[in-house]
Every structure is written in C-alpha cells, then in structure tokens.
Write a protein that binds this DNA or RNA. Structure first.
Lengths: 159, 159
DNA sequence: TATTGTTATACTCTATAACTATA
DNA sequence: TATAGTTATAGAGTATAACAATA
C-alpha cells in the first residue's frame, strides 16, 4: 500500500492528503455519474441493469452464459433481465445453431433504436457534468480515467 | 458505452475525440468504482444503499425526511432502509424533541464500528484501483474529479 | 391544512438451489 | 458427467398512493 508519497505539484495541501482525497473524489464522482446514468435510463423507462445489457448487446449476440459473465451476474439473474426486456420487444432469444441447449440474445430493431436514443442522451448528460471544466481539464480527466480503468480487468459493459 | 453515435462532428484538432472519450471513460470509471464499493460493502454484509446511509449518518443525526433528501430517495423508501439497518442494531430511531411527528436516525456503537471498518476497506480498495498510476497522475485525477463534482449539486454521501 | 412518517402494494434486481435438456 | 438455461423462492431496494399523528 503506497502511503503518502509526497504529491509534488501545485495546490499541494502541505500534508499531502491525496491518499484520502483520491478515494473520496473518485467515490463522489462515481456516484454522480452513476446517478446521472440511472436518471437518463429511467427517463427512457430503463434501469441501469437494462442499460448495461443494451451496452453489451450493441455489438454482440452472446448466449446467456456469456452475457452473465460480461455483466458480472448469475445466469439465473440473466433470465429475468432478458425476460423483462423481451416482454417489451427490446431483445429476442434465438436458438443457437451450434448448441441445442443455448440461446443467443440480440437487440430487436426497437431495442436498437432505444439503445441509440439512450446512449445519445447519456452522452449529452455526462458531457454536461464536465461542462464547466476547461477543454484541457476534460481532456486530462478523460486520459487519467482511461488509464486507471485500463489497469484492470475490464469492469462491466461500457455504458 | 461503446462509441459510435457520432453523426455530427468528426475530427477537430486537439479537442477532437475528447467529447466522446470523456463520456466513455467517465462511465467506465464510474462502474469500476461503484462495483468495487459494492463488493466491499457486500463483504461486510451491506449494500450500496446501506453504505450511503452510513456515510450520511457518520456526522449527522437527521430525520427521515432529511435522510431521504440526502440520498435522493422517497421517504417511503427510507422506512425500509432504516428498518433493515435497525433490525440488525446498526442504527436507531429516537423521537425528535422538537417535533412530535419526527424521528431522528443515528448510528449505534455497533453501526459506527461497522461504518469505520467498511470505510477503511473501501478506502484501501479504491486506492488500489489507482495504484498503477504515478503519484502525479493520482493527484491530478483527484483534483479534476473534485473539480467536476464541485460544479454540481452534491451527489450522494461522500464516503 | 400541511407535514412527518408508516403501510400497503407492486416491480425490478439479485442470488441460491433444484430442475430440464442437451452435450 | 458436465454444461446451458430455467424455475422456485427469498430478500433488498425502490416508488406511488393512502393513511395516521402531529403541527
């Protein structure tokens, strides 16, 4: 555990409380962004879970098992998630041509259109969150956030 | 959120892809941090909702209404959240001395100890996420994240 | 009348365990 | 036997609407 290794940069708070501040700021940022995404999803009648599901289906046609792995959920949780989306004609199940036990999940035209609309709105709203930063700051934040995420085992679906 | 959805502007000098990247990177970072916090909470038998509740109660003794406002929930949702925590002796309800209708919610000694332990673990784990960044990068990320959050109506509980 | 909080109800989301049907 | 998926069940979390008690 790295412990207070002297920040060395402007705005130094003398005692270098960075160790604590990074945690607090990332947690707050996380809740802010997560909450914003949840709000946007809700405006389209979706939940965060559905939003992530759509994010995965956007460029894949996975089986339930792979879907569960992508989202970090149990396969039994997937059944309900896909059921509810299917009931609304947003996704469909098709039999796998290679495995008689498996089904492939994909977006319907309606689901794809909804996914597009939600993604557009989400993009706008998240961008708005950073609207008061300068271009340079936004750029830096983006780079640093990507760098942090890159150093890990890919979380869930993007969106 | 896998890119695409860029019918409008294409490249545009330095700030080109940033507009999209900021959205993608923040969303991914958000899910990573949120997921990590959820994992830590689960290891202590708590949910994210309880984690945030504890975060608020850490330095306050609010009524149900104020609590709901802090967490962005309906008052009826608070009843259940507090009920479940109270059942485990983590928080308590006391009658308000100023208002016969209201109750004040506070952490019990046991709840406070649990809150302390979870916060410590969460701090460690979130810090680990940024472990592979340089000190300067961590510091910058912290500053930028704080700056972004500061420009908004305080999200949920810090913690 | 307005406000504080709870209850009743209904859904989504999630997991564990047991089950079916392929492989 | 092992794997893909579903079903049964249970519980958390959330909201809306109706209610009680107090202001």
């Amino acid at each position: 555990m790295p412990h207070d290794t002297t920040p060395t940069d402007e705005n130094s708070e003398a005692s270098g409380p960075v160790d604590l501040e990074i945690v607090d700021s990332l947690a707050q940022l996380s809740f802010l962004v997560h909450g914003t995404l949840g709000q946007v999803a809700a405006e389209h009648g979706l939940s965060i879970a559905q939003l992530r599901l759509f994010g995965v289906l956007r460029d894949r046609e996975p089986g339930m098992r792979e879907l569960a792995r992508h989202l970090g959920l149990d396969k039994s949780s997937m059944t309900g998630l896909v059921d509810r989306a299917e009931r609304r004609d947003l996704v469909r199940r098709t039999a796998s041509p290679h495995d008689g036990r498996a089904v492939l999940v994909s977006l319907t035209a309606q689901g794809r259109e909804l996914a597009r609309a939600v993604a557009a709105d989400a993009g706008q709203r998240v961008q708005d969150l950073a609207a008061h930063l300068t271009d340079a700051q936004r750029s830096q934040l983006s780079v640093l956030a990507s760098a942090l995420v890159a150093g890990h085992g890919a979380a869930g679906a993007g969106q």
